[in-house]
């Protein structure tokens, strides 16, 4: 059981990071981004393909992260240019379509679940310390530290820097932000690029553990959305906590033989429970209860 929980904790840090990417995209550019994990997976696969061609991993890593950033920035600029005046649901629908498109392109380029699994570098698999008789790998610490850094670093950046304040203004009142001279399109695309780069790194962290095929990795968006829901698409610390809890929950499910094979449904169950819990006091004719 402890082994499974430690394994869950490794995933938890990664899930928190994915959830944080979803929350930040929503808070800063008002888009529920279904394509995020697909973009990160594309960047990660570009990196691993370059490594397969003989490129040293640091160079391949830089190219993969830049590719993820550029793809994300491209999606962001398309949304800003053509869907800037549309509502959140339309923008979310566009990212769903892009998620499907990226998935199809990824399968075509990199193969399916059975044929396309790649060997991702396992940089952080060495043991960090032992807990009882369970070895805790470095990846647990790295993913949790990365998640904590993003949570508190972004929080500080938003509150203390000029760019952060402008991003807050942009997220609160996009058109007024432009009225006061904030270059909203440029800032929004920069946010998309940053999210694409971080997503690539996160996918690279989790890929060695999850088998390394395109559809499994890009499908992590479901978990990311469940984690973001724990934080109500708003709170970074709650999202961090949600990610860790989600990992532990999956680890717990994996430790029980009876339910082990169903652990993939955990994110859906979390989404369902949160939807039910948060809508229990809603009145049928409120604007958003359709």
């Amino acid at each position: 059981m402890l082994n499974s929980l430690v394994a869950g904790l490794t995933s938890g840090g990664v899930y928190a990071l994915l959830g944080l990417c979803v929350v930040l995209t929503y808070r800063l550019v008002a888009v529920v981004n279904f394509a995020m994990a697909g973009v990160g997976t594309m960047g990660a696969f570009i990196m691993v393909s370059l490594m397969d061609l003989g490129l040293p991993w640091p160079i391949a890593l830089v190219i993969g992260v830049v590719a993820g950033s550029l793809l994300s920035a491209l999606i962001g600029s398309g949304l800003v240019r053509w869907f800037g005046e549309h509502d959140e649901r339309t923008k979310a629908a566009v990212t769903v379509a892009l998620f499907v498109a990226i998935g199809a392109i990824g399968l075509r380029l990199f193969g399916s679940t059975s044929t396309g699994a790649r060997r991702f570098p396992t940089v952080f698999d060495s043991p960090a310390f032992t807990l009882g008789d369970v070895v805790v790998p470095q990846s647990v610490l790295v993913s949790l530290a990365f998640a904590a850094l993003i949570t508190f670093g972004v929080g500080l950046m938003l509150a203390r820097t000029s760019v952060g304040l402008r991003l807050q203004a942009l997220s609160e009142r996009p058109s007024t932000a432009q009225v006061v001279g904030i270059p909203a399109p440029r800032l929004a695309i920069a946010v998309w690029a940053a999210i694409g780069g971080v997503s690539t790194l996160v996918i690279l962290l989790v890929a060695p553990r999850l088998g390394g095929d395109f559809s499994t990795l890009s499908g992590l968006v479901t978990t990311a959305l469940a984690v973001a829901m724990v934080g109500s698409f708003r709170s970074l610390p709650l999202t961090l906590l949600g990610g860790v809890l989600m990992g532990l929950l999956e680890g717990f499910a994996a430790s029980l033989d009876e339910i082990q094979k169903y652990r993939g449904v955990v994110p859906f169950l979390v989404i369902l429970v949160l939807l039910w819990w948060r809508s229990r006091n809603e009145v049928w004719d409120t604007a958003h209860s359709r």
């Binding site: 807050q168 609160e172 932000a177």
Partner: peptide
Amino acid sequence: FPVYKRSQAGLGYVEQARTVFRTL
């Protein structure tokens, strides 16, 4: 010009409905 460039060019706009950034 896009909106923000008009502002940078010297056009201030006080919109209806007191559009402060409430959380700032």
